[in-house]
């Protein structure tokens, strides 16, 4: 009896105070130490980031004097942002990026979930060879030229599909997803099967709902990779009108780095873009992700809730 009492009281206490329900809370000094450590970690990240934001708002004089990033804009202005957004190139590219990211992530999740699900039961027909094909695709990267020739053969040059299809299935993501799927309680799947559910129904009604956290993470991985991708667009999109944001921004930031000593004389072009401009670009390219991430985080938490509900 006493064991049961202890159990109940521990459970109650932990539900009240611990981040993870059911977990014994840590001792105060340990918690404090951890808090301080995390605070330091956060500061190490926040300070440079605030400095990037501050630089994007600073004027040229201050930036030049500081020789790069500043910690606080003395005379804040949005000049850098209006310079980047002038001419509508970046806004147009933003639309392209959002479109490609949304469509790409949706298609990628669809094909990756089905692929991972198809591989989630060892011993089924074709399981081993398909898994190996997937695994080896991580280890060998095709060359740029053959990929280009393929896209050209398929008639996808200058088509947005060329930005989605080649990167739609990432073996790493599929393998991770598969691992999560395989971790689902088997009894549940078997029970559903005995009840006459077919494979598709099991996927839709059990596997996907129970794997929300994993799907959210993999979705985030895909979304970020579509969002950050510029290389395929550089190869396959000849019209700068249909470039995604990252490629457009590249002409602001990376080109600057490409201008070495003496190169400017030969190029006869271009002041190096100011640090404020570069910082503004960084902020612009990160903002959408910062906006989207909390929505995904909700799914990560849901996983916790599922575990908690049944206690």
């Amino acid at each position: 009896m006493s064991a049961a009492q202890t159990y109940r009281s521990t459970a109650a206490r932990s539900r009240a105070r611990a981040a993870v329900p059911g977990r014994t809370p840590a001792s105060p000094p340990w918690r404090a130490a951890k808090g301080v450590l995390l605070l330091i970690c956060c500061l190490l990240v926040i300070v440079p980031f605030l400095s990037i934001v501050a630089t994007s708002l600073a004027d040229n004089e201050q930036v030049t004097e500081a020789g790069g990033f500043v910690l606080w804009p003395e005379r804040p202005s949005f000049a850098a942002y209006s310079a980047v957004l002038a001419g509508g190139v970046v806004t147009r590219a933003l639309a392209v990026s959002v479109g490609v990211t949304v469509a790409g992530t949706a298609l990628a999740l669809l094909s990756s979930i089905t692929l991972a699900y198809g591989l989630s039961r060892p011993g089924t027909f074709g399981h081993r060879p398909v898994l190996m094909i997937l695994l080896f695709s991580l280890l060998f990267t095709p060359g740029v030229i053959p990929s280009y020739l393929l896209i050209k053969q398929l008639g996808l040059i200058n088509s947005y599909w060329s930005l989605i299809l080649p990167t739609m299935v990432n073996a790493f993501n599929v393998i991770v997803l598969r691992a999560f799927f395989m971790g689902l309680p088997r009894e549940l799947l078997d029970a559903a099967r005995i009840d006459g559910a077919n494979a598709l129904q099991i996927l839709r009604r059990i596997v996907v709902p129970l794997s929300r956290a994993a799907i959210a993470v993999v979705g985030l991985f895909y979304a970020v990779s579509f969002w950050n991708a510029f290389f395929n667009a550089m190869l396959y999109m000849n019209e700068s009108e249909s470039w995604p944001m990252q490629l457009v921004l590249r002409t602001y930031v990376v080109n600057n780095a490409a201008i070495g000593a003496g190169e400017v004389s030969v190029a006869g072009a271009a002041l190096p873009p100011s640090y404020a401009l570069q910082a503004a670009i960084l902020v612009l390219s990160i903002v959408p992700i910062v906006v989207v991430y909390p929505f995904l985080q909700r799914h990560l938490r849901k996983g916790v809730m599922i575990g908690a509900v049944k206690g």
């Binding site: 198809g118 089924t124 020739l149």
Partner: peptide
């Protein structure tokens, strides 16, 4: 078993076409 295999087909096709075909270029 076969039913599960069919689920892999779309993703597998993408990998084969966009990864392994250009890999022949090696």
């Amino acid at each position: 078993d076969r039913a599960l295999f069919w689920f892999t087909v779309p993703g597998l096709a993408v990998v084969l076409l966009f990864h392994y075909v250009p890999l022949l270029g090696h």
